[in-house]
Simulated scan of single mutants.
Amino acid sequence: MNVNEQITTFLKSNLLDKYLIGQTTASETEEVEHYVNTYPEVKKVYEKLQDKLELSAQINAVKAPKNALDNILNALEEETPVVQIQPNKPKRKWFSLAIAASVVALIFAGSSAYLFVQNSNLSNENQVIVDEIFDLRSDIAKNNSRLTDILEQFKQLNNPETEKYVLKGNRSAKDLKTVAYINPKEKKSMIDVVSLPQLPDDQVYQIWADIQGKMVSLGILTEADRKLQEIPYTEDALGLSISVEPKGGSLERSSDTPVAEISLKLND
């Protein structure tokens, strides 16, 4: 189990909650203090839970009614003389004790319910914090991956071996413009879709490589692809062309007159 998995398992164990309310054993206390002092993520969760617990205790502190204790004592004082004067009526004594016991039971039940709710809330908040931490880590990993891809693309663009080819549309697609970047030494090809005229829903733009008169598909172009992206590199390609094909693309170029084409000079 790696460190991240260990931290996740620990945070989900609710040991932090038990530690904050003093319910951990000696070994559990040692484990909690080890994680808090060793891992900044755990310490951050611990401090946040501690702050929330203190704030919650201050906000939800409930004082007993001002006259509750006086009322109980007065009730007991009122009943006690009766028991002493008439010892043959024990029922009233037990009735008074039952009242006092009921009040104590209600106070205890209320305190237990309050602590249970607070513990449940802390557990839920703890899980939310854990999820937020791992969502943040996931976003950082995705951003780092995208940054790596962008740096690699700029590296290819600035490579002196990379050739740039601009494909512009003819009269059938005069607003079409794409830019191809090809590096025969590293066998890399990229394309930047600058603009594509709108097509009916049952048609698509498809890019092709001319290899000794045979047209090889390099994929379908869409408005969603308006960013620099890799396309298959084709050895000894003589040219590139873009044609309009049925939705889903074609295995063979259906038109001898593409909407855009350009010759490559990689072998000069």
Rank of each mutant, 00 (worst) to 15 (best):
A237K: 00
A64N: 12
S250Y: 07
V128T: 12
Q206K: 00
L196D: 01
S250R: 09
L199Q: 07
A105D: 03
L218S: 00
N37I: 01
S250G: 02
K91S: 12
L147A: 13
K174S: 05
K227P: 04
N60F: 14
D256H: 10
L69G: 09
G110H: 01
Q23Y: 05
A61K: 13
K142M: 15
Y165A: 03
Y205F: 11
I182F: 01
W94F: 15
T80W: 14
D139W: 12
E77C: 10
R253C: 07
Q84M: 15
E245H: 07
L76S: 13
L251P: 08
L76H: 11
D17A: 08
R146F: 11
I191F: 00
P197N: 02
N126Y: 00
V204K: 01
S138G: 11
G213Q: 04
A237T: 07
L167Y: 04
D202A: 05
E152N: 14
I262N: 02
N14R: 06
N74F: 11
K155A: 09
Q86K: 10
V244G: 03
A180N: 08
P184A: 04
E125D: 08
V166S: 07
T38H: 05
E33S: 14
K214Y: 12
R92D: 13
V166P: 05
V32L: 05
D236V: 13
K44C: 08
F134H: 10
I7F: 07
L167E: 04
S138K: 14
E30G: 13
Q156V: 03
D201N: 10
S263L: 15
E77G: 09
I220F: 07
N121P: 08
A98N: 06
T80I: 15
I140G: 07
F116K: 00
D192V: 09
L15V: 09
T9Q: 14
L196Q: 11
K52P: 04
V103E: 01
L53H: 00
L151I: 15
L196I: 01
A260R: 08
N119L: 01
E33P: 02
L221F: 05
A100S: 12
I211H: 11
E223V: 03
D17N: 13
N60G: 09
S217K: 11
L147T: 13
P87H: 10
K93A: 14
I7V: 10
I133H: 10
E235N: 13
I231R: 00
E230L: 09
A237G: 02
S189M: 05
K44E: 01
S112W: 06
V179H: 07
A75R: 05
L106M: 02
E41I: 10
E261I: 05
E31I: 11
F10V: 01
P200M: 06
D51A: 12
D70S: 15
N159L: 02
A260M: 01
A209D: 08
L218G: 06
A68C: 09
L196T: 00
S254R: 03
A101G: 12
K18M: 03
N267K: 12
V3D: 10
I107H: 04
P90T: 06
T257G: 05
L106E: 02
T80K: 15
I7Q: 10
G219E: 03
Q118A: 03
D17C: 08
D210G: 06
I133L: 10
